[in-house]
Amino acid sequence: MKNVLLPGLLSAVLLMACSSDTELTPNEAVYGQTMKSTALQAENKLNPYDSIGRNYREFLSEYQNTGYNPTTFSGVSTAIATIMGSKAVAIDNNEQALFSTSINLPSSTLTSVLANSTLSQGAKDYLTTFVDDFATLRQQPFASAYTEIVNFENTITNSIALTTNDQGVLFTVTSLARYSLDHSCCEDTDWETSVGNIVAATSGALTDSNKAMQYLLISRIAQHENITF
């Protein structure tokens, strides 16, 4: 994986050198393997958005343990809205169409979503690299994938070219990716996370972190339940 992910990151860094008029002081903390217990082996406390991934896992576990059995997209959306409470928003037909293209055409959907976003070009390059490499990450042992994602987060936090909004979106996506890849979450291999699920989460993250979490839950659960979008 290192040969796939790191060159892309280096290219993104070069592209970002002059990409933003808004600079921020980088967090001096260096990302690393942080307090990974058996229960929270996906945790990286140095990601300021780590709680988004943790909350996602808690909501997913609640779904699994409550006995929901939706047979339609509307049923999935309703179940997630019930579980998430005030953190959830209503899903309209356009969003349902977005889920469909995210799953079936993840690459072109990501390109379109990022093109219409307000992210800096550097942040778009980072997200494109990360999502492209997710197909490889999901095939690795979790410990290896965890290390690669944390290294990616380290690069993000040390960049002086990314805006606060850029970092928020990136950290949200990487947090959700880490927790969704943790095998202790879902021993049933039918619960594997697809590239399309991460594209959906990325689309939601462009609005806010709660929508990213909601989009990932809906996308992943609908796919697991074999529900056609």
Results as ranks from 00 to 15, higher is better:
179 Y>I: 06
137 L>D: 04
178 R>V: 04
115 A>Q: 15
119 L>Q: 13
163 T>F: 04
75 G>V: 10
110 L>F: 05
163 T>Y: 01
99 F>R: 04
132 D>V: 09
124 K>M: 07
96 Q>G: 06
157 T>V: 08
173 V>A: 10
51 S>K: 11
85 G>W: 12
116 N>F: 06
138 R>T: 05
116 N>Q: 15
178 R>Y: 08
62 E>C: 13
139 Q>F: 05
123 A>E: 13
53 G>C: 04
97 A>F: 03
77 S>F: 00
129 T>R: 05
117 S>Q: 11
54 R>M: 15
141 P>G: 03
171 F>S: 07
93 N>I: 12
176 L>W: 01
81 A>N: 13
173 V>I: 13
171 F>I: 02
66 T>E: 14
87 K>I: 03
145 A>L: 02
142 F>H: 08
68 Y>G: 09
125 D>C: 13
150 V>C: 03
171 F>W: 00
177 A>W: 07
134 F>V: 02
119 L>Y: 04
90 A>W: 06
152 F>T: 09
153 E>H: 04
96 Q>W: 11
123 A>I: 02
63 Y>L: 11
57 R>T: 14
130 F>L: 12
167 Q>L: 15
105 L>Q: 10
116 N>R: 14
74 S>K: 05
155 T>I: 13
58 E>M: 14
149 I>A: 07
143 A>E: 06
65 N>A: 15
82 T>R: 14
166 D>I: 03
94 N>V: 15
113 V>W: 02
138 R>V: 06
163 T>I: 04
97 A>M: 12
106 P>F: 08
147 T>M: 05
126 Y>F: 15
171 F>R: 07
83 I>C: 07
146 Y>C: 09
134 F>D: 02
120 S>F: 10
60 L>T: 03
150 V>F: 03
103 I>A: 12
68 Y>R: 05
118 T>P: 05
82 T>H: 08
116 N>L: 15
135 A>E: 09
113 V>Y: 01
134 F>E: 00
94 N>E: 09
95 E>T: 14
163 T>L: 13
96 Q>N: 15
156 I>P: 05
144 S>C: 02
129 T>S: 10
52 I>E: 12
137 L>P: 05
55 N>V: 03
75 G>A: 07
78 T>F: 02
71 T>F: 00
80 I>L: 03
80 I>S: 01
160 I>S: 09
97 A>E: 13
68 Y>H: 08
162 L>E: 00
156 I>Y: 00
105 L>A: 11
169 V>C: 04
130 F>Q: 09
60 L>W: 12
98 L>G: 06
58 E>F: 06
116 N>S: 15
154 N>M: 10
153 E>S: 11
113 V>G: 03
113 V>Q: 04
60 L>I: 06
170 L>E: 07
109 T>I: 09
174 T>H: 01
92 D>R: 04
166 D>P: 11
